[in-house]
């Protein structure tokens, strides 16, 4: 099958979805105010992109994502490495981490509002808390999964503890660490959108959706959802695939 026909087949599902949407619009399943036609949504998306609203909102959201994720990444990797290497830290932290891990981060949102008020600080902290457990668990598993023979042979060849850590354990655990970071980024993105709805921040994609609900601007909401999906896909595909290519795939620890 040629490349062109592959692309055409890929469009079939979108065409079907679009037709179903338009059919529902014309049939008046919902009032048109609540269920805009695709043309209106596209028009709104174009308008919001040109007047900069979409860019400003996306930038605000990405800014929170960046800080929250950096915080979670640093804390998560350090704690995960310590848990993997030091027995008493593992004993001490594992019960807490296992208990906190399955609590949805979003459930803390109202509590964080009480503690830290509204705005950027609680949003960033919440994203960091929600994300860090995924990073911790994966890093810890990664350190545990390093082949003990590698460590012993490095020992036998006279490597110091420090160089074993830097040259054996760290690269050995890296595939897991990167998986943890990738999963963490995806969950941070998902949670951030909801957090922005609850924290009444001044700008952001989640806020744009939530704010539009008050004015029944469903076209704005749908346009924002589309942007959220696209940015999420880019984060997943571009950022992490490249990072993996540059590290573990290149070192031959994982096939592309």
């Amino acid at each position: 099958m040629s490349r062109l026909s592959g692309i055409l087949l890929g469009c079939v599902a979108f065409v079907v979805l679009a037709l179903a949407w338009q059919a529902a619009y014309w049939a008046g399943v919902f009032p048109p105010r609540l269920f805009p036609s695709l043309a209106t949504v596209a028009d709104t998306l174009g308008r919001l992109t040109i007047n900069g609203t979409m860019l400003v909102s996306a930038a605000a959201t990405l800014f929170r994502l960046l800080f929250g994720f950096l915080l979670a990444g640093v804390v998560g990797v350090v704690v995960g490495l310590l848990m993997g290497r030091v027995q008493w830290i593992e004993d001490a932290l594992l019960p807490i981490v296992s208990f906190m891990y399955p609590i949805p981060g979003i459930a803390y949102a109202p509590l964080f509002v009480l503690w830290f008020g509204l705005g950027d600080l609680p949003a960033i902290l919440l994203v960091a808390v929600a994300t860090s457990f995924t990073v911790i668990i994966n890093t810890w598993k990664g350190v545990k999964a390093v082949n003990p023979i590698w460590i012993r042979s490095a020992h036998a060849m006279g490597a110091s503890e420090r160089s074993i850590f830097a040259k054996v354990i760290l690269p050995g655990a890296l595939p897991y660490v990167l998986t943890g970071l990738r999963l963490g980024l995806a969950s941070a993105w998902r949670i951030l959108v909801a957090v922005e709805m609850l924290m009444s921040v001044t700008q952001g994609l989640g806020w744009l959706i939530f704010g539009s609900q008050q004015f029944l601007n469903t076209d704005v909401m749908l346009a924002t959802i589309a942007v959220i999906g696209i940015v999420g896909m880019l984060l997943e595909r571009q950022v992490f695939l490249r990072l993996e290519q540059a590290t573990i795939v290149r070192w031959g620890m994982m096939s592309a």
Binding site: G6, W189, M197, L205, G206, Q213, M221, I228, G229
Partner: peptide, 21 residues
């Protein structure tokens, strides 16, 4: 071939983004 692109586009949209709508 038909469904994969649609899944790839819809999957990364956070479910909570749909709540207000």
């Amino acid at each position: 071939r038909i469904l994969r692109p649609a899944v790839a586009v819809l999957m990364p949209i956070p479910s909570l983004a749909w709540v207000p709508l």
